[in-house]
């Protein structure tokens, strides 16, 4: 059974802009699904509909029982509270869902260690680099132990070196923890590298043009990025994207 099931999903904003129309998509338990598409195609809106941050105008979002409150969200910006320490920031979701303080602190420290920020618990967000802030943001989502992790172009503002490293970290964490990930990106390479499945989206109004399984060795590293199999997947997706854009215009 699907973790989240989107059927006939559409969204029209109060301004009259029709952002999405007729989205049908099942999110399977345990998969790493990427939503790939150009800017403004409504990828982020899909993510926010899944999270329940905005209500749909048409269609429905069916979530598996118990999923509410078990979703983590990582935004494009780190969105940290500047007035408090890294540790307190990571503890925030647990504080809001009334996890006992001692347990929350233990889980926060563990999550920070997993994203490679051990020793930075007491630092303030402004003292960290962009990549480190994003790691804190991911640790905050991880510490709450989500069943479904939603990421909205989390690495778009980072340099390539940092982005590659965070890609590896994210994939490793996903394989270790076994949660389900929905990842929004406009990078073909990033989506192929990370995902088990990719939904190609096209805009105005946003809809899904193609869905493709990525058939690569689950053990991915720097060599994967230059392997012929990786190249073939990228080419297929670029063709999907070009076809989608072609009939979108």
């Amino acid at each position: 059974m699907a973790l989240v099931s989107l059927s006939g999903l559409g969204k029209t904003f109060p301004s009259g802009t029709r952002a999405l129309g007729g989205i049908d998509l099942d999110i399977r338990e345990g998969e790493f699904l990427s939503l790939l598409g150009p800017s403004g195609c409504g990828k982020s809106t899909v993510l926010r509909l899944i999270a329940g941050l905005v209500p749909p105008s048409e269609g429905s979002v069916a979530r598996m029982a118990g999923l509410e409150g078990a979703m983590g969200f990582v935004f494009q910006e780190p969105t940290l509270m500047p007035w408090t320490s890294v540790l307190k920031n990571v503890m925030l979701p647990m504080r809001l869902s009334r996890v006992p303080r001692a347990e929350a602190e233990g889980r926060a420290l563990e999550a920070l260690a997993r994203v490679g920020l051990k020793g930075f618990e007491g630092a303030y967000p402004r003292e960290l680099s962009g990549g480190m802030k994003m790691r804190v943001s991911i640790a905050r989502a991880l510490a709450a132990r989500p069943r479904l992790l939603l990421l909205d172009e989390p690495f778009a503002a980072l340099d390539e070196i940092t982005r590659f490293r965070l890609n590896d970290d994210l994939r490793r964490l996903w394989r270790e923890a076994g949660w389900t990930v929905v990842f929004v990106t406009h990078s073909v390479f990033e989506s192929v590298y990370l995902s088990t499945r990719i939904a190609v989206m096209t805009g105005r109004p946003g809809r899904i043009a193609a869905v493709r399984d990525i058939d690569l060795d689950p053990e991915r590293n720097a060599d994967t990025r230059t392997s012929p199999a990786f190249g073939a997947e990228v080419r297929r997706l670029q063709a999907d994207l070009a076809a989608a854009m072609g009939d979108g215009l």
């Binding site: 969105t79 509270m81 809001l96």
Partner: peptide, 24 residues
């Protein structure tokens, strides 16, 4: 606004949102 959404996502009530987010 991102933090406001985060508070909503984790089910924060109006008082938590006031004391932990709006006042700071």
């Amino acid at each position: 606004p991102g933090l406001l959404e985060l508070f909503r996502l984790y089910g924060a009530g109006p008082w938590s949102t006031l004391f932990l987010l709006r006042l700071p």
